[in-house]
């Protein structure tokens, strides 16, 4: 989360942490960071922010999800823990822990033409992949083997990987452009 805050501040955004419904009312856009998706889901229910987030997503709030954040934005989840829910938003199916254990975590360069010529250095940590996308979902990036790892739909943006860990800012720029265009 610290790296997301730093990236967004460098890009001139006013950033605050969202832990409650009151916090959520103060923001024009939301970044859902990496972490353990099953725990973020549980805490969002315990602290009563889940429904408010779902309502804001339905109302068109820009949201950028990385890794666990992408899982939480998917309408359908594969390999979640028992009872795990998502906020939804993307007409997509996402598989949790798609690469295996931590020893299979990796970093690589991805060509993402939508962000320009220069490749994105992407860090995948026990990362998910997108297994199915609906007709309104734009695929932004794939691995060499064709698996989908970055998507966009309306005001939503999602990546399997962590651009914030490697100092890559173009996804955050794109997210902020969406926030400025919608607020």
């Amino acid at each position: 989360m610290r790296e997301h805050v730093a990236s967004l501040r460098e890009l001139g955004a006013d950033v605050r942490e969202v832990r409650s419904v009151a916090d959520l009312e103060q923001v024009a856009g939301l970044v859902i960071p990496g972490g353990e998706s099953s725990v973020i889901d549980k805490l969002s229910r315990i602290f009563g922010v889940r429904d408010a987030i779902r309502e804001r997503i339905a109302a068109g709030m820009p949201v950028y999800g990385t890794c666990a954040g992408l899982i939480l934005l998917a309408d359908e989840l594969v390999d979640g823990i028992d009872g795990q829910q998502t906020f939804g938003g993307f007409d997509a199916t996402v598989r949790r822990n798609a690469f295996g254990t931590q020893s299979d975590s990796f970093e690589t360069d991805l060509a993402i033409p939508a962000l320009g010529e220069h490749p994105v250095h992407a860090v995948f940590i026990r990362a998910p992949v997108v297994e199915r996308v609906g007709p309104d979902v734009e695929v932004l990036a794939r691995l060499d083997d064709g698996r989908i790892v970055a998507i966009a739909q309306g005001a939503l943006l999602g990546t399997s990987f962590h651009p914030e860990v490697s100092g890559e800012q173009r996804f955050h720029e794109r997210f902020l452009q969406t926030v400025r265009a919608t607020s």
Binding site: G34, E36, V123, I125, R126, H162, V165
Partner: peptide, 10 residues
Amino acid sequence: RVKRGLAEML
């Protein structure tokens, strides 16, 4: 980066 990254996510 990958090794320290998992701890960041915890």
